[in-house]
């Protein structure tokens, strides 16, 4: 394996080093080292930064900022991030969670990226040294992105507003058939006043279920109320086919699992 790792104290210096051809940022390494072990020779230089800000979690006044190098295990055990623990624990087994970073999850191709699905529903922003980008724009443009992600930020959801579901065949740990995250706010009369629904494995990266979101507005979260949203759930999706499930199967079961999540 011809890989060389370069470590920089600052993100700025690491960003400069990433301009060299054949380089790639190294987060927790669960995907890049695996690719190298499988014989991927497109990457010859791994670049990382040990800047402590990348490993910090800050929770102030209902706002959260999670450094890109924070692992899924660190999120799952953080006392102020209880609402997100389920999504963090959905990633891999215990050893993977001790290594897998938030930054890497934003780039993980389907069937991976379960935590990014949660961040998409939360309406997170993604920060680099060049500024902040809404996660939806970031995900859409990630293939051309070379800048190191430094953190993600979002508002802590109120208890009960955020829901997350990962469907896998192997229990308790398995790769996603699909994952769904939803941020749902309800008015005093119980009708949905705002909805953001994110889907994993229903495209090559996490996407919003915008037609379903629209169909939920003003409706109650009961069988009748959610029916139009379930009918619209597949709009705009192009599920992946892999050894876990075919695109057809994923499309078939999406409304079933969305129903469970919305009625839960």
């Amino acid at each position: 394996m011809a890989l060389a790792l370069q470590t920089f104290a600052t993100v700025k210096d690491a960003n400069v080093a990433l301009k060299a051809q054949g380089t790639c940022y190294f987060g927790g390494g669960t995907l890049v080292v695996r690719a190298a072990n499988e014989g991927d020779i497109s990457v010859s230089g791994l670049i990382r930064s040990t800047d402590p800000a990348l490993s910090a979690i800050e929770v102030t006044g209902g706002k959260v900022r999670i450094g890109a190098s924070v692992t899924m295990a660190a999120i799952a055990r953080h006392p102020d991030l209880g609402t997100l623990a389920r999504a963090a624990r959905a990633v891999g087994g215990p050893a993977i969670r001790n290594m897998a970073t938030v930054g890497g999850n934003l780039f993980a191709p389907a069937p991976y990226g379960d935590f990014a699905v949660a961040l998409l529903a939360l309406g997170a922003t993604v920060s680099t040294d060049d500024g902040e980008t809404p996660i939806e724009t970031f995900l859409a443009n990630r293939d051309g992105s070379r800048a190191i992600v430094t953190s993600v930020g979002f508002t802590v959801p109120k208890a009960g507003d955020f829901r997350f579901l990962k469907v896998s065949r192997v229990k308790p740990k398995g790769i996603s058939v699909l994952s769904i995250a939803a941020m749902l706010e309800q008015a005093g009369d119980g009708t949905v006043s705002s909805a953001r629904i994110a889907l994993g494995c229903m495209a090559d990266r996490p996407i919003r279920a915008k037609a379903a979101e629209k169909a939920l507005l003003g409706r109650r979260l009961d069988q009748d109320g959610i029916a139009p949203a379930l009918a619209a759930a597949g709009e705009g999706t192009s599920p992946i086919t892999d050894p876990i499930a075919s695109a057809w199967y994923r499309a078939e079961v999406l409304p079933v699992h969305l129903r469970r999540l919305l009625l839960s």
Binding site: L5, V33, R34, N37, E38, G92, G93, A95, N98, M99
Partner: peptide, 27 residues
């Protein structure tokens, strides 16, 4: 497997379970 899938390479690093096949020694 050298892919992070089987767990046969698991070791404990600073009290945490890690997969040694996906960990670079120099880290």
């Amino acid at each position: 497997c050298h892919q992070g899938t089987c767990g046969a390479c698991s070791v404990i690093i600073d009290g945490e379970l890690r997969l040694s096949c996906l960990t670079l020694a120099e880290t």
